[in-house]
Simulated assay, not measured.
Amino acid sequence: MKQSLSKRSTMAEIAAKAGVSIPTVSRVLHHRPDVAPETRKRVEQLLEEHGLIQGRAKKLLRKEHSGIVDMLFPGFDSMYSFEIARGVEEVIARTDLRLAISSTHHSTELEQRWMSKIQKSPSDGAILVLAHGEPRHFDPLHRHNIPFVVVDHGGELGPDTPSVGATNWLGGRTATEYLISLGHRRVAVITGPTTLPCSQDRVAGYRSALETAGLQINPAFICLGDFSPDSGYEQTNALLDLPEPPTAIFAGCDEQATGVYSALRARGLNIPDDMSVIGFDDVPTASIITPNLTTIRQPLREMGRVATTMLLHLINGEPLDSMRVELTTHLVVRDSCRPLDDAKR
């Protein structure tokens, strides 16, 4: 107890000498990124003088750049991941840095193993696209003074974690409003994993659009998926087996929409004559499949570019204008939706 009080007293003394708050001293001590360079330098010097930075910590504070930026994403099986990676690479290509890409293969265990490895690697910083990451998973990066930015995170983030995302709630609402504007009243949604905030937000936007239009929300029309084509296929078949199927389906992502297409065709149904379909993401395949998929564009490549630009600022010890950047989604109209005949409503 005395040791804890002594350390806090020392931190208070350092804060007074540096002209900052105790939380700022704590952020420097734990290698948080949201401290101005001059302030960080001043506090680090005082921390060292008072013996609060020792051994390996001193080396980390003074480490030289390795010229390597790491990127971690869930899998190589997704156009979603590749589009973000393309944005990251575009920015890295304009620097002297090299990009090292790794995949967790959607595994929490592999995600944690990677976090352990990067502590020992000569990395200047990391771009993280994580399927399972929680704030506590970032502690090793904070402790070892490795700057990082999280892209389209699937969980809650603390206020000191730099991140880039998109307006998922608005996208879900826009997709549903568009289908309603075409005369559809029986609109179904196939979600992503219910644990992911991005999926929760898209469904919340869907619900909001229906409620605003005065339409009843049918629980049978909210189908649980996992963003995969297989879940799109399975849940579309479940919807078609209902006594009164929907006339339009909002797929949680474009890859899931390909499964919706396959299920409809297996039943001999035509898109969009028999069923309108709308996706989310606007990956390159959306404009290639037949019919071309109407979708909500999530600026994935721009998210990668913005995240990398933020990381470069952190690597250079520069403060960020904002710890959270949210980019706008918008509707891309193609050929997979059509106005509904009055007789089919």
Rank of each mutant, 00 (worst) to 15 (best):
I180S: 06
P197Q: 09
P193R: 08
A213W: 11
L196N: 01
L224V: 14
T174Q: 12
P272F: 12
A209V: 06
L224Y: 02
S276C: 12
Y261M: 08
A204M: 09
P272S: 08
S262W: 08
D273H: 14
A257T: 12
F250E: 14
Q200S: 13
N292V: 09
A220T: 10
A213S: 14
R267Y: 12
C223Q: 13
S287C: 04
D230T: 15
T236M: 04
V283Q: 03
S228D: 06
S276N: 11
L182S: 10
G252F: 07
S228Q: 12
D274N: 14
I180P: 08
F221Q: 04
G183F: 03
L242G: 12
S228N: 04
C198K: 13
I289H: 03
P229A: 04
A209L: 06
L224W: 04
I289A: 06
A251S: 15
A213Q: 10
P272W: 13
G172S: 05
G183E: 10
A263C: 14
A248L: 14
M275A: 11
N218S: 11
F280N: 01
S231W: 10
C253I: 15
R265T: 13
T290W: 13
Q200I: 15
R185I: 12
T236F: 05
R265F: 14
D282E: 12
N218Q: 09
T236V: 12
V260T: 05
Y178M: 07
T258K: 05
R265W: 14
A248R: 09
D273G: 07
N270A: 04
T285F: 07
T195W: 08
I289G: 01
T176H: 02
T195R: 12
T174S: 06
Q256L: 15
L182V: 03
R186Q: 13
I222Y: 05
T174E: 13
D274W: 14
P284M: 09
E177F: 02
I249E: 02
T290I: 15
E211I: 07
I278N: 03
I180L: 15
E244F: 11
A188S: 10
I249H: 01
T191V: 15
L242F: 11
Y178E: 07
G172K: 01
T236W: 01
S199Q: 06
T290H: 10
L264H: 00
E244H: 13
G205W: 13
E177H: 03
N218H: 13
A188Q: 04
A175W: 02
A188F: 10
G171F: 00
P229E: 03
A266G: 00
A209K: 09
F250P: 10
Q256P: 08
R185P: 04
T195K: 04
A286T: 02
M275L: 15
G232H: 06
L239R: 01
D282I: 02
T285K: 03
S262Y: 10
N270P: 00
Y178F: 15
N237I: 03
I288G: 02
S287W: 03
T290R: 00
D241W: 01
Y206V: 14
G183K: 05
I217G: 01
D281F: 09
S262P: 01
P291N: 11
